[in-house]
Each structure stands twice: as structure tokens, then as C-alpha cells.
Design a protein around this nucleic acid. Structure first.
Length: 272
DNA sequence: CAGGTCTCCTGCTAGC
DNA sequence: TGCTAGCAGGAGACCT
């Protein structure tokens, strides 16, 4: 499943291929991916538009075209494939055709989303980006800022870390990794964390994501084979999906927090 | 406003 | 061996 580092890799890979390409036609095989405009509107708006840049905010890709922003979330299974054959796979839902090849949005579980906005709209005031806060790298996200927000939250810190409005970019896997590296129990009530804990969490988030991004960037040849990504990332994980704690060698616990599978070490991450 | 639950969808797995 | 029921998982919608 693509997390922030994979999305960053997709962004960089796609930039090499589709920048300055003009959309000649679009075919839509499953339209529920597109959330805020009709299928007809989507097609008529985008045909003739050229990809000028690709940005990322949290786990969202932001495609810049002449007159529009196309905002894409891959959720668990989404990927962009570059092809030039005729045959269409049943999981290829949206196909953008350029002069010499096409780009296909492929998504087995159909959970991904696309939003289309005209460029005169501030996309950060609209769904889905209005619900996305700052990334850990963004210096507008300060310790005080985060600590103040945490004071009002009673839910488990694991759940808080998955809330994109609070910190953008952490998914289920990285939330576990961040909590493990800070030795904080995932069930700890968010408002019980000290300012020092918050600082640790912020630092760990930066570190974990930065490392993953750099790895994603170096291990991936092509976004086409997204399997390579998850394979490599798994080598770097310390706690998520592990059986034994790398620190104390005791058994890792698996619980559910907010119906998300959560791994932690009861010994190294005791509930305070 | 905070927080809980339901929903979307399908490949995969456990269990028969 | 073949079948089915149940599950996982980001984030929006909706409700309390």
C-alpha cells in the first residue's frame, strides 16, 4: 500500500515521463474514483490539457495542468502504469492517452480518489486537502502547536498519528514505527503525553519518513513495479509485522487500535 | 468540537 | 479439492 514515501517515488517517476505531455483523450471504465465532478465534466475539462508539474501533499499527488489541478490519492492499491498497448486490464479504471503512450490509473480495490479543480480555486480550502495538515518536515508544524492540539485529544496516540489533519503523511505502518522508536505505547491517551514526548514524536516522524523517502527513491526503478517498493521497505521496519522486538528480543504484541492492526513491544513501550 | 461507526471494494485466508 | 464467510484498510459522511 502506498504511503507517503511511495507517493513521493511515484511523483518523481511520473515527472520524468508525463511532464509536457498533452492529454489527447481519456477513457473511464469505473467512474466512482472521480469524486467532485461528473465523468463528462472530467473528460471535457482535461482533454487538451498539458501536465506542467506534479506536487505532493501528504499522501496526495497534485497534478498541475494548464487550467486545472488534479488531486489523486492512491489509497491501498492505486498505481499509475505507463503503457502503449490496446489491451485493458480489468483494474485499469482511468486511461489518459497522450501522443505516443498512455497513463493508466490501476486500482484493485477501487479505493483511490481523484478531485478536479480549476486553478483559480484554492485547493487547500477544498476537499480533500482541507483535511490535511502540515507534514512533519514543514516548519509551520511546531512542537507547541502540536502539543496544544494534543491537550484536547483523549483518543489513543496511535489513532491521533493516523489523523492526517494533525500530522500529514503517517500511515499505519509508519505510525507504529514512530511509536516504537519513541518507546511510547500506542494506547497512551494523546493528552497524557508530555511536551517532551511530542518533541520525540515529531523528530521520529521526520526521521522515519525521511529515511523511507530516501530508500524509496533509491530502490525503485519504476513505479510500474510497486511490489519492489513494499519489499524493500519491509526490510527497514523495526516493529510493524515483526514477531520479535529488535531491542529486547521479547515477543511483539499485535492489537487493534481504532480497528487498525497495531504492533508494539509491551516491554519497551509500557503503558504509563 | 471530539470522537465513534459505517461505508467503499476485492484479493486473500481460514475453516469446513 | 472447492467453496464461502470474513477480514483489512484511508478517509469521508454521518451521527451523537
Amino acid at each position: 500500500m502506498p504511503e507517503l514515501p511511495e507517493v513521493e517515488t511515484v511523483r518523481n517517476s511520473l515527472k520524468e515521463i508525463i511532464l509536457n505531455q498533452t492529454i489527447r483523450s481519456i477513457s473511464i471504465n469505473y467512474n466512482k474514483i472521480i469524486k467532485n465532478v461528473s465523468e463528462e465534466n472530467f473528460i471535457s475539462s482535461l482533454v487538451g490539457q498539458t501536465f506542467l508539474d506534479i506536487d505532493r501533499h501528504g499522501k496526495y499527488l497534485i497534478f498541475h495542468l494548464n487550467d486545472y489541478y488534479l488531486i489523486s490519492h492512491l489509497r491501498m492499491e492505486g498505481k499509475y502504469l505507463i503503457k502503449n498497448e490496446e489491451e485493458i486490464n480489468k483494474h485499469e479504471h482511468i486511461i489518459f492517452t497522450f501522443d505516443d503512450f498512455n497513463m493508466r490509473y490501476h486500482d484493485t480495490r477501487k479505493f483511490g480518489t481523484m478531485h478536479l479543480y480549476q486553478k483559480n480555486i484554492n485547493i487547500f480550502d477544498e476537499l480533500p486537502l482541507k483535511n490535511v495538515g502540515y507534514e512533519p518536515f514543514d516548519n509551520r508544524l511546531t512542537i507547541d502547536n502540536l502539543y496544544n492540539k494534543f491537550q484536547k485529544m483523549k483518543k489513543p496516540i496511535k489513532t491521533t498519528l493516523l489523523d492526517q489533519k494533525i500530522i500529514a503523511g503517517l500511515g499505519n505502518i509508519y505510525a507504529d514505527e514512530v511509536l516504537y522508536s519513541t518507546r511510547i505505547n500506542p494506547l497512551t491517551q494523546t493528552n497524557k503525553l508530555s511536551r517532551e514526548d511530542v518533541e520525540k514524536i515529531l523528530n521520529a516522524s521526520r526521521k522515519v519518513l525521511k529515511k523511507a523517502i530516501s530508500l524509496g527513491g533509491t530502490t525503485i526503478r519504476s513505479f510500474v513495479s510497486s511490489h519492489d517498493i513494499s519489499g524493500r521497505f519491509q526490510n527497514e521496519l523495526l516493529i510493524h509485522t515483526k514477531k520479535t522486538c529488535p531491542n529486547c528480543r521479547k515477543e511483539v504484541a499485535k492489537i487493534y487500535v481504532g480497528s487498525r492492526g497495531t504492533y508494539y513491544c509491551p516491554d519497551c513501550q509500557p503503558l504509563r
